[in-house]
Design a protein around this nucleic acid. Structure first.
Lengths: 348, 348
DNA sequence: CTATAAAATGTAATCGATTACAAAAACACT
DNA sequence: AGTGTTTTTGTAATCGATTACATTTTATAG
């Protein structure tokens, strides 16, 4: 028989601890702890007695105590880029699904306009408050103060540079852009425009996939009209104005984000240029609003929720295993061409 | 002179603790702790010596240890509704700004389709893992398992029922809807339609504000055509179909969410009905897309980022003070009527 | 210059779980 | 029965900060 060193407090001490459970089940705290976290180490009937006591007391482990001793917080940090779009909301849903299924919580941090926020987030990591990090943008990696990728905390990136050796979840950027090119060629287009994103990996890849197919079809890259953009709707409007003012108007334009495509179409519409009769427009991302604009936008749909889910799964594996074969440390997901109203054969 | 009980570990023990800082500054750990969290309690030069040591060692407090002892985690839980819209992303930005400014972190949890997730979140609260909760939807309050509002953790709700005594950040729902009514009356409209939201507080209030003004202007409530909706774009399309099929067509329609207004307009456009020439349409929320649809939508803009910010401020005060005068426990913010292209005088 | 209050600092207990190590119990095999 | 394993359980140290209480130092007053 075991004698408890700590008598059960007669006054309601605020919350139920592992000692209370141990008392009720007539075992030591060590056994309670094991029954809960490594059931295999405890005899069947002892385990059941413990679980019974947990139920009766309504015991919930104190997370801070566990984190302190076990040096694991079961919390992941998700870092958002400066501008939060619907696309990221969907990613978040997938991430949360995967994490919560494994009992992990989720701390979010967006960088926004406040640079000092970045330091704060890095500190979260350095303080071991989180077990892993999911980067939804590549910026933080460049931080001067403390480089996240040098701290020994697992990191997973979503949709950012492939040349870095950070495990990543990517989509087939080139293939997606190539599918756009095929689609437009099939419709009979021979002159093309391209609304760029902010410079970087994503823009490079999409441009590469787009031009590769066009080149094979005999279209010179120099013939493609480039309109500068930065992924935002406002920059799509700017691209639209450039299109209107120019005398050299392609019959098909690929904007590498939906918001830009929508802004672009809006500008054209106001100028009396019809989509798709006069110009075909294609976007990229597959956000919900593409089904509500006029005309409905043909676009490349990214499996955003799946991407988030896979990223979180990858992170969990990294946290738990510490080592994963190099060839499984990144995943590439496919995209889908959604053909709607904004593309049609060119008018003659 | 103080003799440290714990010799400085010669091997790099993984991370720097408060003992290392105390050693370097030649003070006790208690003094280090005080210098950092209640600077007023230590002498000026001692404090500077400690801060210097903190800088030199790169010390970052272990959050788990602090939470355990201080019974505060400096973490807030933000609960999202089942469907995440751009509006909530903006709220989140405001929340994060306010929280991070005070050194608070942010755990997010969305309810989504998984009901068991609700229990998990309630456990987070029960386990004292978070110091406070921001509810972006009213659902969780109804949980059977454990009622969040019965746990003694501060809660702030954003835009949910006022009859509950939970501190809240609200907007002038009635005033906003009234402004819509005034605007449409001023334009000369006399027949009205209303696309409802899912039943509940928000819909009641907006309906109330809308009809009150119309009643005063001599319009019978029974004359207002109600189209059922649930805030989503899809339901706006449904409302549009009903409008088209009906013989009794009002000249102005108020949809109480932007997405519904956008879906509504889309359906009308496809049926050859012109907005605003044939029908004026007004939305509610002020999401970004309202500036990109065709025609640009007249709407009521909610100060979403400010709402998030204020909610977080309120929560921090509750966490720190525990008591706030009843009349300051809720805030109501104003809205703004944004007049754009979707409203015009009725054609005769 | 002493008495007393106030300010600054130190000592050590504490928060609540996990886990290394030790001890006990159960089992297997000659 | 005796000895060696294996399984199960308990004891107590431990994680790293905070803080009650004790002690020392400094300031203030008479």
């Amino acid at each position: 028989m075991v004698r408890k060193k700590r008598a059960r407090p007669s006054s309601y001490s605020g919350s139920i601890t592992i000692d209370d459970v141990a008392d009720m089940a007539g075992v030591s705290t060590a056994t309670v702890s094991r029954a809960l976290s490594s059931p295999g180490l405890v005899a069947r009937d002892t385990r059941e007695r413990v679980l019974e006591a947990v139920r009766n007391t309504g015991y919930i482990p104190n997370v801070a105590a566990r984190s302190l001793r076990a040096a694991r917080s079961k919390l992941a940090l998700v870092v958002f880029p400066t501008c939060i779009t619907p696309f990221f909301s969907e990613l978040l849903i997938g991430i949360e699904n995967a994490l919560s299924a494994e009992g992990y919580g989720l701390i979010t941090g967006s960088l926004l306009e406040r640079p000092e926020r970045e330091t704060q987030l890095v500190h979260l990591v350095a303080a071991k408050q989180v077990d892993g990090v999911i980067l939804l943008n590549g910026q933080m990696i460049r931080s001067d103060t403390l480089r996240v990728d040098q701290l020994d905390v697992p990191i997973v990136a979503v949709g950012v540079p492939g040349k870095s050796d950070i495990p990543s979840v990517l989509i087939g950027e080139r293939e997606g852009a190539a599918a756009v090119a095929w689609h437009l060629l099939e419709l009979g287009h021979r002159t093309f425009g391209y609304v760029t994103g902010a410079p970087g990996y994503v823009d490079d890849e999409r441009w590469g996939g787009f031009t590769e197919v066009l080149t094979e079809a005999g279209i010179a890259v120099s013939e493609i009209v480039r309109y500068p953009g930065d992924f935002t709707g406002a920059s799509g409007i700017g691209a639209g104005l450039q299109f209107i003012e120019s005398s050299k108007r392609p019959t098909a334009v690929f904007a590498i984000s939906d918001m830009m495509a929508i802004g672009f179409m809006k500008t054209l519409r106001e100028a009396g240029i019809s989509v798709p009769a006069d110009v075909s427009v294609v976007g990229f991302d597959g956000i919900e609003f593409t089904a509500f604009c006029e005309p409905e936008l043909t676009t490349i749909r990214q499996p955003s929720e799946v991407m988030g889910f896979e990223a979180a799964r990858l992170l969990i594996e990294l946290v738990q295993e510490k080592t994963i074969p190099a060839d499984e440390r990144s995943k590439t997901l496919g995209t889908e061409l959604v053909i709607r109203e904004s593309t049609a054969p060119p008018s003659r």
